[in-house]
Nucleic acid binder design. Structure first.
Length: 511
RNA sequence: GCCUCUCUAGCUCAAUGGUAGAGCAGUGGACUUUUAAUCCAUUGGUUCAGGGUUCGAGCCCCUGGGGAGGCACCA
C-alpha cells in the first residue's frame, strides 16, 4: 500500500477515479461524505430489530411460491450478495443466525430509497423494514419499503464465492475469515456449545466454577517451560500459569469439595498443529473420589459435549466410526508398551535394558532419564499414534507423575490416566496425592532434576505442602484440553482452527 | 531450533527465462422475480524485500521476512 506522505493536491481525485484498494476505499469514503452532506447519518447509533432472520425462516419458511404476507418485520444484517436487474434489486442479508433475501423494488421503496440502495456495497451493515414474501421461485424474502445504512464498509470483502483461503490472512484477519467462511463460523459455534455443555454437566453434578491466579510465583502443576513476566511495583518475577492444578487442590483442602475452572494456560514451547502457546484447559477436582470416578466424568463430559455441539455422539475419526457414548477401553501404559515391544516394559526393568529397547526402535534418550521416563517414551513411540478410538491409558510411572498417588497395587506406578483420541492426548487425571510427607519427597526429586538442568521440572511448593498438612480428602482430579476436544468435535486437524486468534509473529502493516 | 514447500491485482488463481493475465469485487451501460443473476464495455500490479546470474528474471541462485507441513519439544 502507498505511503500517505505524498499527497499531491489531486491525489484524492486520482485515487477515486483509479482502481485498486486505495481507490475503492476512497470511493466508499466518498459515499460516506455524500451521505453526511445530505444530512444522513452513515453510522447511526442503533436500530430496532423485530426479528432475527432465523426467526423469519422458522415462521415463514414453508410459504408457497409467490406468497405476499402482511407480516411486517424489521431486520438487520450485512449485505453479502447483490443481484441488480435494473429497477429491482435482490440482496442477500446475513445476520448471526441466517441469510434472507431482500426484495427491493423501485416502485415499492421509491426514488430516493432506491438511489440509496444503489449506493450500497457488499459488506455494508443495513437495517431494513418490509413485508415477508416469497418470490415466484419460492425464495423467502423481505419486500423492503424502508432501508437504512447501519455501518458503511469502506474496505471490500474477500471473494464472495471462494472466500479467504490464505491461512496467514485467515488467522490474522479472523474478522474477514468469519465474514466469508461458513466453516470458520461453524467451528466456533461448536466450540461454544462444547464449553457451555461442560458447564451444564458440571453444574448439575454440584461442581463450583472458580477462578484462580494466572500470575504465579512458581510455575507448577505440570512439566512445561513457563513464560516469565515482571511486576513493576512489587519488583518481582512472575510466571504465567502452566496448569490450574495446585490452586484448585488448595480449594479442596478448604472444603469446597467439587471445583472446576475453565481457564487459559501458557506454555513456552513449540507451536504446531497441536500446540498453541496459550490454550484452554478445564480442570476439576472431586473430593472423596479417585481416578475411576473422574474417568467416568470424562466419558460423560465428552459424550454430552458431542451431543450438545453436534447432535450426535457418533463421530468419524481418522476413517473409523466411533460412538463416544460407548465405554472407553482402559489399558495400562506398561502393558501397551510391553505388548508393542514383545518384552516386559516396566519401571522395575533395569535402566540399561530400557535404554537398549529405546535404541532398538530409534528413540533417543537422555542419561538423566530414569526408568519411569523411559517407559513413557517407549509407550509414546510405539503406541500413542495408533490410539484412534478413545482410550484411557493408565498407570503412569511415579517418576513422571509427582502429584499423583501411587497405585494401590504397584508402588512404581501411579493411579493416573491419560485419554488418547486420534493419536492425541486429550485429558489427564489421577487419584490425587494427599500425603504431605510423600508430596514433599516428590517435590524434592523434581527440584533435584530441575537443578540438574531439566527446565521443565518443578520445585518445592511450600505453600502447597502447608495446605496438604491441613488435610486434603481423597480426591480425584481431571484436566481436559479444551482446544483439542474442540478439534475432535469440529473435525479440524489444526489447533489454529479452534482458536480465534492463534499466536502468530507480528504482522508489518503499512498504512 | 532443523528440513521441505509456499508468497503474483482488494479476494481466488494463471503465466517454457522473452509484452504480467483471468474470474470475482470496482467503474460505465442494459435489464422489475434473481439465486455466485446475466449481457456489453472498462479501471486496477514495487510479482514479499534486497542482492546476484543473464541480452532479458514472476520464473534460476543467494540473503532476509511472513505463512504452511514435517521433525525436535510438549498437551
Amino acid at each position: 500500500m502507498n505511503e500517505i506522505t505524498s499527497p499531491e493536491p489531486d491525489s484524492t481525485d486520482q485515487a477515486t477515479t483509479g482502481s485498486g484498494l486505495i481507490a475503492e476505499r476512497a470511493r466508499r469514503l466518498g459515499l460516506v461524505e455524500e451521505m453526511r452532506a445530505d444530512g444522513v447519518q452513515p453510522y447511526p447509533y442503533r436500530f430496532d430489530r423485530s426479528h432475527t432472520l432465523s426467526e423469519i425462516r422458522a415462521s415463514s419458511g414453508a410459504l408457497e411460491p409467490g406468497t405476499e404476507t402482511t407480516e411486517r418485520v424489521q431486520v438487520a444484517g450485512r449485505i453479502m450478495l447483490r443481484r441488480d436487474t435494473g429497477k429491482l434489486v435482490f440482496a442477500q442479508m446475513r445476520d448471526r443466525s441466517e441469510e434472507i433475501q431482500l426484495f427491493i423494488s423501485k416502485a415499492v421503496i421509491g426514488e430516493d430509497g432506491f438511489a440509496a440502495v444503489k449506493n450500497l456495497d457488499l459488506g455494508d451493515w443495513v437495517g431494513a423494514e418490509g413485508l415477508v414474501m416469497t418470490t415466484r421461485t419460492g425464495e423467502l424474502s423481505v419486500k423492503v419499503d424502508r432501508i437504512e445504512l447501519l455501518a458503511k464498509a469502506v474496505r471490500p470483502m474477500p471473494d464472495k464465492w471462494h472466500g479467504l483461503s490464505d491461512t496467514d490472512t485467515r488467522f490474522r484477519q479472523r474478522y474477514a475469515d468469519l465474514i466469508v467462511n461458513a466453516e470458520a463460523r461453524r467451528t466456533f459455534e461448536i466450540r461454544h456449545a462444547m464449553i457451555s455443555s461442560f458447564r451444564r454437566t458440571l453444574d448439575a453434578k454440584g461442581f463450583i466454577e472458580v477462578e484462580t491466579p494466572v500470575l504465579h510465583t512458581e510455575a507448577g502443576g505440570a512439566m512445561a517451560r513457563p513464560f516469565i513476566t515482571h511486576h513493576n511495583t512489587l519488583d518481582m518475577q512472575l510466571y504465567l500459569r502452566i496448569a490450574l492444578e495446585l490452586h484448585l487442590k488448595r480449594l479442596i483442602v478448604g472444603g469446597m469439595e467439587r471445583v472446576y475452572e475453565i481457564g487459559r494456560i501458557f506454555r513456552n514451547e513449540g507451536i504446531s498443529t497441536r500446540h498453541n502457546p496459550e490454550f484452554t484447559m478445564m480442570e476439576l477436582y472431586q473430593a472423596f473420589g479417585d481416578m475411576n470416578d473422574v474417568m467416568a466424568i470424562t466419558e460423560e463430559l465428552v459424550a454430552n459435549a458431542a451431543r450438545d455441539a453436534l447432535g450426535t455422539t457418533v463421530l468419524e475419526i481418522s476413517g473409523q466410526t466411533v460412538d463416544l457414548a460407548d465405554p472407553w477401553p482402559r489399558q495400562r501404559m506398561v502393558d501397551l508398551a510391553s505388548e508393542a515391544l514383545g518384552t516386559e516394559v516396566h519401571p522395575s526393568v533395569p535402566v540399561d535394558r530400557l535404554r537398549s529397547l529405546a535404541d532398538s526402535i530409534e528413540v533417543r534418550w537422555d542419561p538423566k532419564w530414569g526408568p519411569g521416563k523411559l517407559v513413557e517414551e517407549l509407550f509414546e513411540a510405539t503406541t500413542e499414534a495408533h490410539l484412534i478410538r478413545p482410550t484411557f491409558v493408565t498407570g503412569h510411572p511415579v517418576e513422571i507423575s509427582p502429584l499423583a498417588r501411587a497405585d494401590r497395587n504397584d508402588p512404581l506406578l501411579t493411579e493416573r490416566f491419560e485419554l488418547f483420541v486420534d493419536g492425541r492426548e486429550l485429558a489427564n487425571g489421577y487419584s490425587e496425592l494427599n500425603d504431605p510427607v510423600e508430596q514433599r519427597l516428590r517435590f524434592e526429586l523434581e527440584q533435584a532434576a530441575k537443578e540438574a538442568g531439566d527446565a521443565e521440572r518443578g520445585s518445592v511448593d511450600e505453600d502447597y505442602i502447608r495446605a496438604l498438612e491441613y488435610g486434603m480428602p481423597p480426591t480425584g482430579g481431571l484436566g481436559i484440553g479444551m482446544d483439542r476436544l474442540a478439534m475432535l468435535l469440529a473435525g479440524v486437524d489444526t489447533i489454529r482452527e479452534v482458536i480465534l486468534f492463534p499466536t502468530l509473529r507480528p504482522e508489518v502493516i503499512d498504512s
